[in-house]
Amino acid sequence: MTVVQNSERVLEPLWRIRLKLFARGFKKNWALFAESPIGLIGLGVIVFFGLIALAQPILVNTVWEPKVYDPINGFDIEIPYHPSPPSARHLLGTDVLGRDVLSQLMYSSRFEFALGLISAIVTVLIATTIGAVSAYFGGLVDTILMRLVDLVIMVPFLAVLIVMSALMGVGMIELALVIGILSGFGGTAIVIKSQALSVKVKPFVDVARVAGGGHAHIIFTHLVPNLMPISLLYMMFVVTGAIFSEAVLSFFGLTEIQMSWGLMINTTQVFGYLMRFDTWWLLFPASLSITFLCAAFYMVGRALDEVVNPRLRER
């Protein structure tokens, strides 16, 4: 009995060691990340939007009356003229159809996060697989995949999206998938491939091969985990692209989405309030949200770039 107790005291469980290693790595990377104010600003903005996205359902259920403050169907009967300017009742005013702008804004930010997340995950899945496979096999597979990637890079991405969504109804999931696939086959794959090439020649890959590991085993347990940091970095840029594309498509009224920032501006434009300078609350909150959230993800990506790419660090 005593022997067992002793060995338990000496050998820490594996998960705790992994956790410790992870915490140490995280601390070090966080210190690097926190060096640049741009990354911190970006993170702050993202957290802010995340909080207001979470706050909306709570607010509707507690403080706000659902009939008045519903982002899609709400209508305020007590105000005679819509759009009404910001007041104590509606902090950002109401839109042309009598809906609360602040509630719409908060509701949409949840939607944008979902869109960005889905397309980023799809992109990373595709790009990592393509990059790892084409770097690992080389030769014909590499040539075919890279020509495909070149083709996708050359195409004006949004023009294709515009044509597509004009001709068929595009909802949130489809849009996220298409953005994810297009950007997954695009520039992200090239960057990840170049990283994979440098991982491929490391000794542990050879060891795995000598130990009898198959191709799939080596790619998915040895190559891909080492590509994760750079994939995470490119996820940020994909989120920027996804939010931006969705906003543009919704602005032109091409999507079948119920409520988003782009759609709020579209509503403003359809009712002819876009170039009127007195009703600023119909345009500015949504546009500034798009701009700031896109910029925030981009900034975080840039700051992460310095953590992930040691070449960029000054020492």
Binding site: I38, I265, M275, A295
Partner: peptide, 21 residues
Amino acid sequence: SRLITLGGLVLFTSFPPWLTY
């Protein structure tokens, strides 16, 4: 230069119709 960088970044990711406005 930090301000210029931030400004350029925000303009670069800004929503084109809004910028037009």
